[in-house]
Nucleic acid binder design. Sequence first.
DNA 1: CTCCCCCTTCGAGCGCGCTCGAAGTCAACC
DNA 2: GGTTGACTTCGAGCGCGCTCGAAGGGGGAG
Lengths: 126, 126
Amino acid sequence: MSLTIAEAAEQTGLTTHTLRYYERDGLMLREIDRSATGHRRYNDRDLDWIGLITCLRGTGMPVSDVRRYAALVREGDGSELARLELLRDHRLHVLAQLAEVQNHLGAIDRKIGIYTDLLENAQQAS
Amino acid sequence: MSLTIAEAAEQTGLTTHTLRYYERDGLMLREIDRSATGHRRYNDRDLDWIGLITCLRGTGMPVSDVRRYAALVREGDGSELARLELLRDHRLHVLAQLAEVQNHLGAIDRKIGIYTDLLENAQQAS
DNA sequence: CTCCCCCTTCGAGCGCGCTCGAAGTCAACC
DNA sequence: GGTTGACTTCGAGCGCGCTCGAAGGGGGAG
């Protein structure tokens, strides 16, 4: 139940470079365990946390905010409200961004409709 | 019905810097008209086109693909199918990206639920 | 013992999409 | 005539998030 960095990379879909980068940039909850020879060993909790990072990053949260969130979790008891607020703020950003993308997508779909009709008519005419 | 670059920026929500950048990077359909003194004058068609660029960029299309699309439009008759394919490809990317974001958002919402419950119970206990 | 591969750290580099600043022109207003 | 301010071009710079390469250390297979 502990993975090398290469295995963790495979599992999470990130690269080993990115995993090390997240760690040195303070996004991880703690320093990753090491084997006797100094190699990183990722456990289940590490992978869960990386999963959460992926959700946050994948919805556009800046690395700096992920770092802040990680710091709150590291603080432990008492920071729950701050964490909740951070997540709720982010949620609103994501919803706004989704609405905007869907709006833009609607315009693109209309454009696609125009070209589709145009080409269908051209085919009929030929 | 022709706007200065500052007015066009205001209308489109872009900056004057970005408008010039789009032009020199080949995203516009043609060179923008100039006043007697060499100042840019944006007309309605320019603004419509910038609106489309905004939709494409706002849904994550890379500048290089917008440039390709603009080149196809400039080519004129005969490029309609290529334009349609480009838009359809992009549409699929957007849909995939939306699905991923919504998926990630679900995980975040569950996390928010956990913290919300936690804090409600804490409040009851106090 | 050698080979090979995966790991380590550190710091530099990169790709994208702007973003900015310098230096200059011109028109309008006081 | 001087000042202000919006515009011009050009090229450099920046912020983000990785991404990569150099240089070196084990450790297991043959």
